[in-house]
Write a protein that binds this DNA or RNA. Structure first.
Lengths: 196, 196, 196, 196
DNA sequence: GATGAATGAGTGTTCATTCAT
DNA sequence: CATGAATGAACACTCATTCAT
């Protein structure tokens, strides 16, 4: 049943199917046929909307990044306390948002990271994402610490967040958000304590 | 010309070729034909030594884990200072050993992690590895801290080490080992300082 | 915005795009999408005007034949010298008209010839064309030679013209019209000389 | 039933199947699956022996050229009369050999010619072939005529031979070899008569 | 009159695996 | 021990065609 103006609908429909597919069988086995079947459309439609499979994967990764970015921004905008500590906690919170620590999200991010090692287009996206976390953190630490300390703290906290996330993803158990937050908040406080 | 005792030689030859292949083209494109060509042997021989492709991948991951484990053990055995701090630093050092932060090693680990989400055999290996790092760290922190603190510190340090490693791997630049060590040592000291 | 009387315009627009497409990428790769893009119209419109792809190809071949036929007729009508020799030269000239020895024309004719071996509709057209050249030549030779000689001369000259054209097309260089004309004119004179 | 040393057997088997397929359905429809089915082998084997479809087509065209070249050489070697006229007739004969004027051969040559317009590898082969006919003819004409005349005669005869062959191929009827030979021999004699 | 969304069969190609030699 | 011939399913992608709008 062809219609006009289907583009945004189909695109998000296919991106959702891609996330689902990567969650279910992994990126290597998430074939176009599999994704199309999940989306309930024909194989050919994917080329119609995303040129080729890489186009679809790229769009999917971009979508994940947007969701993450929005989660962080929303939390920071809602802050009443403008202190660096509050902002840093909000950034950390955003990275451990329920949307990011679900099984599917973790599997998909991990798959994209591995893929990005050999796909320049994904690599570019992934570095933008990495850099965004670092510079967000660095900006806040800078308000409390000298530049060198701020940079080291930002690098450390970014690594800690990613590492907690990664180990959670690989653990095979439900992500223990409270535990992760406690460890990350502790790091924030230890670093900020260097200020005075 | 059949020879006797070829098994260990062939096996390590094929594991090396697998690492090389994953480094060059990624796990998705590292076909048996590609690996066999790198190793200079015929396609068929892989089933002979490793049942099938998964067998080869599993053996390769096991090999990586052994190298990592040996690096850590060697460093700890060579310590003159038996303090928890020295041991923790040795463990950290082992994880940032040159063999672990090279391009090929990082690409391969990352690929295995992503794969492990959908391959139980790899997942089992990977969890053993994760747990080993945590329990090594926890054992040392325990000598200086109460149990709860030791556990949190071990979880944090394990995550920090993995996170530093991960962000280094994804950065696309040569791994800055000095920087990573500085951040991790700092974390060790901050945690041990809680001992009073 | 629908218009009336678009049919002839659209048809010739699509035929031109087909010639261009066959010239650029060959008949095998000249997909409907490619042709439609060249013509600046939607895919679907082709079925509207030409039933299907074969209909478009057939119409395109018919168009080429018309151009060729007109070129020959025009030259013969313009003759002041009504001799067989003059007419034969005019027919030859028409077959080496600039419109026929251009890269696109040669590629397209060749493609149609090859296709005609397996498409009855094209085959029919192509035989009409072949026969027209032969009977034009035969009619003129007949004015100077006995029937058997006229037929042989017409067959020879038709073959020579097609052969010169074919070898020119395949040579990969610009068509050397002067050389082709010299060789064909020479054949005309050698045959007419048999008249005594 | 895998065997060793199958390469030459399989290669010629697949080339034969390709000729048969092009004859039956044309080059455009001669898919790998179709060819493989004709040969009674699996699809995959074609990549095994010819890298890809183009490799198979190229090998097939090379085969056709070899058969043609051998036919001509054989006839010339068997000549008792060493005159240019005899050699020229032998070359002509070779080009109208039964192997060249059969339906399959004509369809295949025509398909290759059309394809060569857009496939450099085939184009190269085709030009070698064209040039070989011309230079064979030119070499013989040169023994009886001044250079300029010899060149023109060779160009004319090559075109005439190709043209007779082409029109025969497109006629849809069995090739009339006697008629073609008569016309070509006539041309040979008319050109040689210019010698004085 | 014209669009472009949608299909589904078909393409060339790759691949892990098997097995006779 | 080791080869490489062979398979057949799976892959991403293309395409002519249909049809609601």
């Amino acid at each position: 049943m062809p219609k006009v103006g289907m583009q945004p609908i189909r695109r998000s429909q296919l991106i959702s199917a891609t996330l689902e597919a990567v969650d279910q069988v992994g990126m290597g086995e998430a074939s176009i046929a599999y994704i199309a079947r999940l989306a309930g459309v024909s194989n050919g439609i994917i080329s119609h909307y995303f040129r080729d499979k890489n186009g679809l994967l790229e769009a999917t990764m971009r979508h994940l990044m947007q969701v993450l970015g929005q989660g962080v921004r929303r939390r920071r905008a809602a802050l009443k306390d403008p202190s660096p500590r509050a902002h840093l906690r909000a950034i950390v919170d955003g990275n451990f948002d329920a949307s990011q620590v679900s099984g599917p999200a973790m599997k998909t991010w991990l798959a994209f990271w591995a893929s990005s090692m050999h796909h320049p287009a994904l690599q570019r996206l992934q570095r933008i994402n990495d850099h965004r976390l670092y510079s967000n953190l660095c900006g806040e630490f800078r308000r409390a610490l000298p530049l060198a300390d701020a940079r080291a703290a930002a690098r450390g906290l970014a690594a800690l967040v990613d590492g907690l996330w990664l180990r959670g993803a690989l653990s095979g158990q439900a992500f223990d958000t409270q535990q992760a937050l406690r460890i990350a908040y502790d790091y924030v406080d230890l670093q900020l304590a260097k200020a005075g």
